[in-house]
Simulated scan of single mutants.
Amino acid sequence: MVDVTDHELVPEHELIEEEVLEGVLEEYDIDRTDLPKIKRRDPATPDGAQPGDVVKVTRDSRTTDQAIVYRLVVE
């Protein structure tokens, strides 16, 4: 079976710590549930991710070098 996370077109996905998440939510003045969602079974979701966790997705961007987005893991 192919590991999609090794593919060059799949951006880096990593679980973030609660302390980091609190800072992000405060900076944007949002709640965890306001974040876009990603399914727990999505092949790019990091191993061990559980519903309620937040994943940081870092992708290359032509305008800003790197674009960072956050996704809430859902069932």
Rank of each mutant, 00 (worst) to 15 (best):
residue 1 M to S: 14
residue 1 M to K: 12
residue 3 D to A: 05
residue 3 D to C: 06
residue 3 D to M: 03
residue 3 D to I: 12
residue 4 V to K: 06
residue 5 T to C: 01
residue 5 T to F: 03
residue 5 T to N: 11
residue 5 T to A: 03
residue 6 D to T: 08
residue 6 D to P: 03
residue 6 D to K: 14
residue 8 E to V: 05
residue 9 L to M: 01
residue 9 L to A: 01
residue 11 P to S: 10
residue 11 P to M: 05
residue 12 E to K: 15
residue 12 E to L: 13
residue 13 H to E: 11
residue 13 H to P: 11
residue 14 E to Q: 13
residue 15 L to P: 14
residue 15 L to S: 08
residue 15 L to M: 15
residue 16 I to H: 02
residue 17 E to M: 03
residue 17 E to W: 04
residue 18 E to C: 00
residue 18 E to I: 05
residue 19 E to F: 07
residue 19 E to N: 07
residue 20 V to A: 09
residue 20 V to Y: 13
residue 21 L to K: 06
residue 21 L to Y: 04
residue 23 G to M: 03
residue 24 V to G: 10
residue 24 V to Q: 12
residue 24 V to I: 15
residue 24 V to C: 07
residue 25 L to N: 03
residue 26 E to N: 05
residue 26 E to A: 12
residue 27 E to A: 10
residue 28 Y to N: 00
residue 30 I to K: 07
residue 30 I to T: 10
residue 30 I to L: 06
residue 31 D to M: 11
residue 31 D to Q: 15
residue 31 D to H: 11
residue 32 R to A: 01
residue 32 R to Y: 04
residue 32 R to M: 01
residue 33 T to K: 10
residue 33 T to V: 03
residue 34 D to F: 00
residue 34 D to V: 00
residue 35 L to S: 01
residue 35 L to H: 07
residue 36 P to T: 09
residue 36 P to H: 09
residue 37 K to V: 00
residue 37 K to G: 00
residue 37 K to C: 00
residue 38 I to N: 05
residue 38 I to Y: 02
residue 38 I to P: 05
residue 39 K to D: 10
residue 41 R to F: 02
residue 43 P to Y: 15
residue 43 P to L: 12
residue 43 P to W: 13
residue 43 P to T: 07
residue 44 A to N: 10
residue 45 T to V: 15
residue 45 T to I: 14
residue 46 P to F: 11
residue 46 P to M: 14
residue 47 D to V: 04
residue 48 G to S: 02
residue 48 G to I: 00
residue 49 A to L: 04
residue 50 Q to N: 11
residue 50 Q to A: 06
residue 51 P to M: 08
residue 51 P to L: 06
residue 52 G to C: 10
residue 52 G to E: 09
residue 52 G to V: 08
residue 52 G to M: 14
residue 53 D to W: 10
residue 53 D to F: 04
residue 53 D to G: 02
residue 53 D to L: 02
residue 53 D to Q: 05
residue 54 V to G: 00
residue 54 V to I: 02
residue 55 V to R: 15
residue 55 V to Y: 12
residue 56 K to A: 01
residue 57 V to L: 08
residue 58 T to S: 14
residue 58 T to Y: 12
residue 58 T to I: 15
residue 59 R to P: 04
residue 61 S to A: 09
residue 62 R to G: 10
residue 62 R to Y: 09
residue 63 T to L: 15
residue 64 T to M: 01
residue 65 D to I: 03
residue 65 D to P: 02
residue 65 D to C: 01
residue 66 Q to F: 06
residue 66 Q to A: 12
residue 66 Q to H: 08
residue 66 Q to M: 12
residue 66 Q to N: 13
residue 67 A to M: 06
residue 67 A to K: 09
residue 67 A to D: 13
residue 68 I to P: 04
residue 68 I to Y: 01
residue 68 I to D: 08
residue 69 V to Y: 09
residue 69 V to N: 13
residue 70 Y to A: 07
residue 70 Y to D: 09
residue 70 Y to Q: 07
residue 70 Y to S: 05
residue 70 Y to R: 04
residue 71 R to T: 14
residue 72 L to E: 13
residue 73 V to Q: 11
residue 73 V to P: 09
residue 73 V to S: 12
residue 74 V to F: 04
residue 75 E to M: 11
residue 75 E to N: 15
residue 75 E to R: 15
